[in-house]
Simulated scan of single mutants.
Amino acid sequence: MIECKELAGKVVRQVTIFEDGDCGPEVNFEFGDGSNFNVCLKSAIEAKLTLDEGGQPQVLKDYSSLDIPR
């Protein structure tokens, strides 16, 4: 389990599901404060909270794990 406490209380502006994103299926949450939470759905979890103020997004928190327990 990965707990994402930094996401609690954020206002969701938009949720987008990509069938074939950069790393396979992924879900992106855009928040009212300009931050984004992206989850890649594959054999390992890649999830990051970022802030995009133009240019390269700044990673605020990396929730990625190496393997999903089975």
Rank of each mutant, 00 (worst) to 15 (best):
G9Q: 03
N38L: 10
P57G: 04
D52R: 13
G9R: 03
K48A: 07
I2P: 05
G21Y: 01
V27A: 14
P69M: 00
L49S: 12
S35R: 09
G55D: 10
A47I: 10
E3M: 03
D52M: 04
V59L: 02
S64Y: 02
P69L: 02
E26W: 01
L66I: 01
G21S: 10
V11R: 15
D67L: 05
S64I: 01
L51Q: 15
V59W: 00
E19C: 04
K42W: 03
I45W: 02
V27L: 14
N28K: 13
R70K: 12
L66Y: 02
D33E: 06
E26G: 07
P25L: 01
D52P: 12
V12M: 05
L60K: 03
C23I: 03
T50F: 00
V59I: 15
P69T: 02
L51G: 04
N38T: 10
N38M: 15
F18D: 13
N36G: 14
K61W: 00
I68F: 06
Q58R: 15
D22V: 09
I2W: 01
T50D: 05
V11G: 14
C40T: 08
V11M: 08
L49M: 11
A8C: 12
S35A: 07
G55I: 07
S65R: 13
E30M: 09
D20T: 09
G21C: 10
V59F: 00
G34L: 06
L7K: 08
F31K: 12
Q14E: 15
V39S: 06
F37G: 09
G55F: 03
Q58W: 00
P25T: 02
A8M: 13
G24H: 05
D33M: 05
D22W: 07
R13W: 01
L49F: 09
V27H: 03
F37S: 07
Q14Y: 03
N38P: 06
D62M: 00
A47G: 15
K10V: 06
D62K: 00
F31Y: 14
G34K: 08
V11I: 13
M1D: 06
L60S: 08
G24P: 13
K10H: 07
F31G: 09
P69G: 03
E6D: 15
I17P: 04
C23H: 07
L60M: 08
D52K: 12
I68E: 12
C23A: 10
S43R: 07
V12K: 04
E19H: 04
G21A: 11
L60V: 07
Y63I: 10
N28L: 09
E53A: 08
D33L: 05
D22G: 08
E19A: 12
S43P: 14
G34N: 10
R13P: 02
A44F: 04
M1V: 11
T16G: 02
S65F: 00
G24L: 05
V15Q: 05
E6M: 06
S65T: 15
C23M: 14
K5L: 11
G34H: 04
S35E: 11
F31L: 10
V59G: 03
A47R: 04
D52Q: 14
V12P: 13
N36A: 08
R13K: 13
A44R: 12
E19V: 03
E46K: 05
A47E: 13
C4Q: 14
L66H: 09
G34A: 07
V59Y: 00
F37W: 12
I45T: 11
L60H: 02
C40E: 11
Q14K: 15
E30D: 11
D33S: 06
